[in-house]
Simulated scan of single mutants.
Amino acid sequence: MPSWIMTVEPVCSPDAYALRRDYYVEVAGRYLGRPATASEVDEGLAGDGAELLVPPTGQFVIGRWAGRPAACGGFLLLGAGRAELTRVYVAPDARRGGARLLLAALEELAAAMGATEMVLNTRLDLVEARALYSRSGYAEIPAYCTGPYNEVWYGRSIVSR
């Protein structure tokens, strides 16, 4: 039976870039109510801050399902023990428990880098993501940042294992 393997990878690797692109295709398309164009996805990727998802400011993880890249996510250290979860994506045809494993890997890495709390922001229309976060112990928190796509904020305590 196929299984998941989570590994830290450079956010600029070909697999990371392809998964980040898939992430933008999905979230932009849902926001727009139609498939996102290649130029809209390129615009989303340009200057999105992903270059910060490397030590000492963050980390990026790729999840492989049955050997193929099928999930990604990262976190950014915000200071004062807080890390922000970002770019969490699992390919639709691989949504078989990988998201929880990805969250666990990211939380463990963030804790190892000194974080004691993981926070995130998302949109209200991303109901599957919101359900995942709730099932994974995240609770709604007051807004900690602002932005055009920030509609709901979540957080949870994390500890080093």
Rank of each mutant, 00 (worst) to 15 (best):
E107G: 07
G33T: 04
V27P: 02
G73H: 04
P14K: 09
A70D: 14
G58C: 02
G97Y: 05
S136T: 03
R130Q: 15
G44T: 05
G73F: 10
P56I: 07
L126H: 10
A70I: 08
A94S: 15
R156S: 08
R156I: 09
L101C: 11
G63Y: 07
S134P: 00
R34Q: 11
T37Q: 03
S160G: 08
V159T: 13
P55W: 08
A105K: 12
R135S: 12
G137P: 10
A111I: 07
D15F: 06
Y133V: 06
P56Q: 04
Y23M: 14
E140N: 05
R135Q: 14
A38S: 07
E9R: 10
E84W: 07
G98I: 13
Y138P: 01
V25Q: 07
L78W: 01
V159P: 00
Y133K: 03
V127R: 06
A38V: 02
W4K: 03
V25I: 06
T86I: 14
E51A: 12
Y154Q: 06
S136W: 01
T7I: 00
S3T: 12
S3R: 07
S157T: 12
E51D: 11
A105T: 14
L78A: 08
F60E: 04
A110V: 08
L120D: 00
R30Q: 15
A28Y: 08
L52C: 09
E117Q: 15
L102D: 06
E117F: 05
L53A: 15
D42C: 03
T86V: 15
T116L: 09
A104C: 03
A38F: 04
L101Q: 15
S160R: 15
A71G: 11
G49T: 01
A91P: 06
Y31P: 04
V54T: 12
P14M: 03
D22V: 03
E117L: 13
R156G: 10
S160K: 14
R20W: 05
D93C: 14
R87H: 15
A18I: 01
S13F: 01
L101Y: 04
E51W: 08
A46G: 08
Y154W: 11
R21V: 02
L78G: 03
Y138W: 02
G29M: 08
R21S: 15
P69K: 09
R100L: 10
R34V: 10
E151P: 09
V11Y: 04
C145Q: 11
L101I: 09
L32A: 14
A104Q: 12
L109S: 11
E151K: 11
V119T: 14
G81P: 10
G47Y: 00
G137V: 09
V8L: 05
S39I: 09
I5N: 03
G155K: 12
E140R: 10
